[in-house]
């Protein structure tokens, strides 16, 4: 068991290291000469060299990488070029905003999608199933900005039920805040529903078809009991683990949704950084997103293993 934990942690650490290397190369090496980019094509070569020296971008790559990473460890995330503020001052509040939005969406979508997935599995190949799977699939695959725009048009403008901007006036109570967050959250819900429902359905069907379910049925247990005690126990556990790994998917959607609803979260911050070619902000933002994803996956993985008796008690007697 301890071995298992250590292996997982070790693998996550390696992945994290590679992630930082990829992000570093993506934002510092690929774009080429940093000072030239900043100063423009007509700047004097000596000014470019000087700025490069000042920024440390004339040093060997590994040294630049080392400086960046050690900075990260000391909480020095660099300075944003476009905001002229330390990056950590920007990222902190943005992260909180994003988490709020994501949590609201998750609270709505997870029970709904699991219910939908189980219902589809139990009514396999019947109309209910087709409606849930095909409907869910169609909603899931449409880009967030398309879903968001249609929601804004329908609920925001035509029906005038919800505010179009996600930002509640300062000092509003939680209910008002939720009201403002509803449309962006609903966009996420729509995008995630089909995906989670589909995974739940697959897991439940696998469990329904398993020999042990047949054994339980042939014991003479009522179907409801069989499903509750034997089927769902085996199908929901992996589903929940998979849902947790969907945070990456969710964060990707946040870039678009936050931009669309003008909501000051991580997604919009990264987008703005990309637009303004603010590389220090961009690379740190992307790295943080990657870390959030890795941690979520790791936790889900560990939780799943801890709950799974086959791993908890790995060896037979």
């Amino acid at each position: 068991m301890a071995r298992f934990l250590l292996t997982r942690l070790g693998l996550a650490a390696i992945t994290l290291f590679l992630l930082s290397v990829i992000v570093f190369f993506g934002s510092q090496v690929l774009p080429g000469n940093v000072a030239r980019r900043k100063l423009g094509p007509f700047a004097d070569q000596s000014a470019v060299d000087q700025l490069n020296h000042q920024l440390g971008t004339d040093k060997p790559l590994y040294e630049q990488y080392w400086n960046w990473v050690s900075g990260l460890f000391h909480g020095d995330l660099g300075t944003s070029l476009s905001y002229n503020l330390p990056v950590n001052q920007l990222i902190g509040p943005a992260l909180v905003h994003s988490l709020k939005l994501a949590a609201f969406a998750f609270v709505m979508v997870v029970p709904l999608a699991i219910l939908g997935g189980v219902a589809a599995a139990l009514k396999r190949d019947k109309l209910t199933d087709r409606v849930i799977t095909i409907g869910g699939l169609s909603l899931t695959v449409v880009p967030e900005f398309v879903t968001g725009i249609i929601l804004i048009l329908v609920f925001g403008l035509w029906l005038d039920l919800f505010p179009v901007s996600a930002n509640a006036p300062d000092g509003s109570n939680i209910l008002t805040q939720l009201k403002y967050l509803f449309l962006p959250a609903l966009t996420l819900v729509i995008v995630l529903f089909g995906y989670i429902a589909r995974i739940t359905r697959a897991g439940t069907i696998e469990s329904l078809d398993a020999d042990y379910t047949r054994t339980a049925m042939l014991k003479g247990l009522p179907r409801r009991t069989v499903i509750r005690r034997h089927v769902l126990r085996n199908s929901l556990l992996p589903t929940i683990a998979v849902i947790a790994t969907q945070t990456g998917y969710l964060i990707g959607g946040l870039v678009v949704i936050e931009t669309l609803f003008n909501y000051p979260g991580m997604g919009r911050l990264i987008f703005t950084a990309a637009q303004k070619k603010d590389f220090p902000l961009l690379e740190t933002g992307v790295l943080i997103v990657g870390i959030v994803f890795l941690v979520a996956t790791l936790l889900a993985d560990l939780a799943y293993s801890l709950l799974n008796p086959r791993i908890r008690y790995a060896t037979a007697e």
Binding site: T215, G220, H230, P309
Partner: peptide, 20 residues
């Protein structure tokens, strides 16, 4: 099934619920 009929089949490993 609950009272009079029983069945045992090949591969007992899959006949038992792995998480109970």
């Amino acid at each position: 099934h609950a009272t009079t009929l029983s069945m045992v089949y090949q591969n007992p490993a899959s006949a038992l619920n792995p998480s109970i």
